[in-house]
Write a protein that binds this DNA or RNA. Sequence first.
DNA 1: CTGAAAGCGCTAACAC
DNA 2: GTGTTAGCGCTTTCAG
Lengths: 339, 339
Amino acid sequence: MAVTIKDVAKLANVAPSTVSRVIANNTRISEKTKRRVREAMEELGYHPNLNARSLANSSTKTLGLVMPSSAEKAFQNPFFPEVLRGISTKAHEEKYALLISTGVTEKEIYEAVVGMVQGRRVDGIVMLYSREDDQIIDYLLDVNFPFTVIGKPFQNEEQITYIDNDNYKAGKDATNYLLELGHERIGFIGGDISFMFTNDRLLGYKKALQQKGISLRSRYIVHEELTEEEMKKEIVYLMSLEDCPTALVVADDFVALKVLYILAELEISVPKAVSVISFNNLLLAEVSTPSLTSVDINIYKLGYEAADCLLKQLATSSKERKKITVEHQIIKRHSTDVR
Amino acid sequence: MAVTIKDVAKLANVAPSTVSRVIANNTRISEKTKRRVREAMEELGYHPNLNARSLANSSTKTLGLVMPSSAEKAFQNPFFPEVLRGISTKAHEEKYALLISTGVTEKEIYEAVVGMVQGRRVDGIVMLYSREDDQIIDYLLDVNFPFTVIGKPFQNEEQITYIDNDNYKAGKDATNYLLELGHERIGFIGGDISFMFTNDRLLGYKKALQQKGISLRSRYIVHEELTEEEMKKEIVYLMSLEDCPTALVVADDFVALKVLYILAELEISVPKAVSVISFNNLLLAEVSTPSLTSVDINIYKLGYEAADCLLKQLATSSKERKKITVEHQIIKRHSTDVR
DNA sequence: CTGAAAGCGCTAACAC
DNA sequence: GTGTTAGCGCTTTCAG
C-alpha cells in the first residue's frame, strides 16, 4: 500500500500521533520535531488518506451539490456553470471539495442525496435550485442536516437558510424600466413556474403594472411550461392581437433568445416594434442580436454566498437560519427602446 | 452516532460480518438470513458508512472530474453542463458518485487533483478538456492512475485513453458543406488554440480548401485568443476587404453568436451576404437569429463514453489504452445558404 | 452457511 | 511535548 502516517513516524523517529498532530499543526508540538516530521513527509511523498481521516473524526471536508434532474432542460442552462464557479471558489478557499449528485430522475437524485448524507460523505449540502414540493428539502430538514438553498424555498421558508435575489423587486424593476420607456402594453413570458423565481418575477411584474394603474390582462401572460411549439403558438397569437404588447418581460435570457427568434420570424423588429427585457445576464445576453437588456442577478455571487453561508454554519455549528439577498442590476443594451 | 452494521447484526441475531455479506449480496448466505438482515436494516434505517467502506476495501465508488480553471471563460460555455449530464448518467448507472475539483488557478487545480488521488477519494478521473502542456495529465501518467480525457491529448497520445470527435473531419465536413453551397472565399474564426479541438478543426478546414485547389489566405483566419475587442476589429477588417469571405467556419456556437452580432452591426446579412457554420450544436444554436447551421458533436455522448471507458477500465483493471471517436453530424439551419 | 478477529489509516483521549 | 492505545465502521481472511 501507499505510504502512511506510520512510515513517516518511523522515519522521523516519533509516534504516529505526533505526525497526526503535525498535520493538524497542533501548537503543542515543538518547531524542531515539526520540521523533522515535515521533512520525513516530504521525503516519502506522504499524503493523508482522507477516508481514514473522515472515518476517525467524522468530518469530510466536502460539500454536496444537488442539481435539478438532468432529464430537465433547466440543466442545460448556462446558469449552472456560473453558480458552480461561485461555489467552487468559496469551497476551495476553505479547502472543501465538492461532491455532486448523480441521477436522472427525481427519485434517483433523492436517493443519491440520502446516500451521501447517510453515507457520511459530505458535511453539508447546497441545493442549486428551488422548486415546489421538493422531497429532498423535506428530508434534509427532517434529519436536521446542514444545507443552504439557492432560490427561495416554497415551503418552510422560516426554517431554511437560503440565498436569493429579490426576484419580486427584480420583476418590478424590469417592468418599471419598460414603463419608464413609455410602454403600457407589456407582456410577460415566463419560464417554468415550478421554479420559485419565475413566480416572484411574475408577481413583481403584476405589482408594477398595478401601481401604474394598468389593468392586467391574462392574455399578456405566457408560460413556458408547455412545449417549444406551444409556446411559439402562444406568442404568435399574442403578437397577432390588435392591441398586442409593445414590450415583453421575459423569464430569462435563454427564453428571450427563443422569443427573439420567433419575433424575427414574424418580422417584428426588436426593439423598434417590441422591446424585450430579460433576466440573468448570461454571457449570451451580450452577444445575442440585438444584445439583450437584462437584469443581472449576480449568479456567481449566489453560488459564492451559498457556499459561504453553509461553511459558516458548519464552522459554528449554529442552527440559526439566515436569508441572504443578492442585489440585482439592470444592464441596458439594445433590445429595449422608448415606445 | 448513527446506526451501524453492529446494530443491525444485533437485531438480526447474526454477526457483523454476515450483515456485510448481505450488503454485498454474497451468494453463500441463505435467503432466509438475508431476509432477516434486510428487515433489520429496514427497521433501523441502516445506511452504510461509505468512508469506512472505502477505507476497508480501498475503493471509493467515485470518479473525479477535472474542469478547466474557473478563471477561464471556457468554463462558462454551456458545453460543460452537457458533458456533465453524460458523465453523470453513466456514473449513476454504475452507482458511482462524482467529485469535482475546485480551485481557480491552474496550480490550485493541480494540487486539488493530487489531493484527491493521493487522498484516495476517487477511483479514476475524467479530464473534461484537453490542452497544451497539461501538468495534470503528466502527473496521472506518472503515478499510473486511471483516467480518461475528453478531447485529444497534445502529448503522449499513445498512452492515453481518450474520447474525441474526429475534429479534423468535422472541420473538413463543415468547410466542404460551404464549398458545396458554392462558396469559395471561406474564412475561419477560431476559438482558443490552446484547446486541441480548435487546432484539429482548423487543419480540416485547410485540407478541405486545399483539396478543392483553393489557396489559403492567412487573412482569412482569425483567432479568438485575443480580447473581445480585438477579435471584433479583426472581423471588421476581414469583412471590409474587397474580396471578403462569403462564408465563415466558426469555432463554436458561442463564438458564432458573437460573429452574428458583429455582422449585424456591420449590416451584413446572414445568410444572404455571408454564410456561417459553427460547431457543437448547443441549445442556443437553435434559438439564435438566424438559427445556426452547426456540427453536432454529440457532447452528451462524449461525457457518457468518457465515463463508460473509465468505468470499464476500473472494472477490468486493464491498462490497455483506447481511443473512442464520437460521430458528428451537420445540422442544417438558417445561417447558411448557397452562394 | 456463519462467526471471530484482524486490520484499513487516521484521530483523540489519556497518560507521563 | 510526546507516546500509547482505543476506536471510527466496514471488509475479509480464516475457522468451523
